[in-house]
């Protein structure tokens, strides 16, 4: 089969236990989409509490909003909903799937590999006040742990309801039970849209209306000279935990004739071989999004570290040689 004509639509899966803040997060997304056409797939429209004046049209399984976003029902199943999205006259630019309270979001994420889509990341929202108690519940504890472990980005929500000591304990516990998940602390599930949908240049470039909601830092990097793939991967692996999103097109020494696409969501990242370069565009372009980190490191030291790491990608080019290593 040949490459699809359209680039695949990124899919973000949002999971977490009942009451953790999933729907709040989806609401924030819809209100701060800033022109990005997002399709959210949910079990329950009612819980979204969309303002009536925002609704442009409603036809049973789909609600169209004035800002270009749509909400689709999952009642008929994920396959049907995903295929229905591709059939729309104007397909969305992003898909967000909100899973139900005991679902394994990683299982839902597998639908993001259907033709026409790509998995962007799995975001799990956890209620800082209750998550540890839920995790030992005799009926749902296993499911809660499974969700936490499956997160690329773990939103530790409602941290205003716990003490500093409790927060530190919780962070240590999460590091033990979900070592592969990157933790971000939030209040009211207010994660900057850029951190969620940061892969889109559209979302990067537009200003949010909600300053508080959008407290994040952006790094941009570009270089017309090829960069060293091995060094780049080492750099990414060493990024501080406060970097939650990344996206880029890479011009690599190893395969200079082909563009490579870089994606990072939480602790998970990938470099995938893309199409041959149009010669004039042969430039590495990279964007990283960082959030204030409430854990051990100060925001200040992270900023300097990332600045330095990116700088080193430039200077490294003089001495880099093509590597034999196969790319991820």
């Amino acid at each position: 089969m040949s490459e699809p004509a359209q680039p695949p639509i990124p899919v973000t899966v949002i999971g977490g236990y009942l009451g953790a803040g999933k729907t709040t997060l989806v609401n924030h997304l819809l209100r701060n989409a800033n022109g990005l056409r997002i399709a959210v797939l949910v079990n329950d429209f009612g819980a979204l509490q969309i303002d009536a004046d925002l609704i442009e049209a409603a036809d049973g399984d789909t609600i169209s909003l004035a800002n270009g976003c749509i909400c689709c029902s999952l009642a008929g199943g994920l396959v049907e909903a995903m295929l229905g999205i591709l059939d729309r006259p104007q397909p969305p630019e992003w898909v967000v799937i909100e899973t139900s309270g005991v679902s394994d979001p990683v299982a839902a994420a597998q639908y993001a590999h259907l033709p026409g889509f790509r998995l962007d990341g799995v975001i799990v929202v956890a209620d800082a006040e209750t998550v540890r108690r839920r995790s030992i519940d005799r009926h749902v504890g296993r499911h809660v742990l499974q969700q936490l472990r499956g997160a690329d980005l773990l939103l530790l929500n409602k941290t205003d309801l716990i003490t500093t000591d409790q927060r530190n304990d919780l962070r240590q516990w999460l590091a033990d039970i979900a070592p592969d998940s990157r933790v971000v602390e939030t209040v009211g599930a207010r994660l900057p849209v850029a951190a969620l949908l940061g892969g889109s240049h559209v979302a990067f470039d537009r200003q949010s209306h909600d300053e508080h909601f959008d407290a994040h830092r952006t790094w941009s990097f570009s270089d017309a000279h090829a960069i060293d793939g091995g060094r780049f991967r080492a750099t990414v692996a060493a990024l501080p935990a406060s970097i939650v999103r990344g996206k880029g097109v890479l011009h690599l020494v190893e395969q200079p004739e082909v563009a490579h696409v870089f994606q990072l969501v939480g602790a998970r990242w990938s470099i995938v071989r893309g199409s041959p370069w149009v010669p004039a565009d042969r430039v590495t372009r990279l964007v990283l999004i960082g959030l204030p980190d409430h854990s051990d490191h100060s925001d200040h030291s992270d900023v300097e570290a990332v600045d330095r790491m990116l700088q080193e990608l430039h200077v490294d080019r003089e001495r880099s040689d093509p590597l034999d290593e196969e790319l991820v």
């Binding site: 329950d44 429209f45 049973g60 399984d61 789909t62 609600i63 029902s73 999952l74």
Partner: peptide, 9 residues
């Protein structure tokens, strides 16, 4: 218990 749209109502 699924209806078009408002499935969880």
């Amino acid at each position: 218990p699924a209806m078009p749209g408002a499935s969880a109502d």
